[in-house]
Amino acid sequence: MVDNKVNSILFAGVGGQGILRASDIICEAIMEAGMDVKKSEVHGMAQRGGCVTSHVRYGKKVYSPLAETGAIQTLVSFEKMEALRYLKFLRKDAAIIVNTEEIYPPAVNMGDAPYPIDVIAFLKEHYSKVIHFNAGELAQKAGNIKTANVVLLGAVSNMMSIDQSVWENVIKKSFPEKLVKINLAAFQMGIAA
């Protein structure tokens, strides 16, 4: 494999789900753990209800902020059907973390198109490592539904060799003091999910 030394994570979801914030936090943690990191994202028009993606790449030395199509090791999908949109970017042995919450695209809302069924079963049929949970529910348990993105971060952290203390430090730095406790709880929810 070409990029055996560089790891690639693809974050995907819908505008407003806190995807860019989550990918920022993960980059800070990687940097604090002493590795090189680059990330890439789409701004602008995509914010308005559109698809949002962010590539995060890390290792000893990273050149490209974009991964080669077909070379991504981890997909973190903040919405259920969005996971299906990016499968061609993944390695065959990729791990997939999916938030099972559904956000309907306009055509589904209008009754003109169906929302895909059996998404999780399909993913499990084609990929050996699929982790799925309702991040919104777990965030609610942690104390605030808006921390769903940090719940998902907790789940990704299980696949990375970064010390717990680094994550805690970065989360503390990333939020105003009154929100730190809830976000740390959300992160733990994700680790346990």
Partner: peptide, 19 residues
């Protein structure tokens, strides 16, 4: 030979919209 997705159905797009 480009990488292909195992998922063959058409996915409903999410075009940007007025808020």
């Amino acid at each position: 030979q480009m990488p292909v997705s195992p998922y063959k159905e058409t996915l409903s797009p999410r075009p940007p919209n007025l808020c």
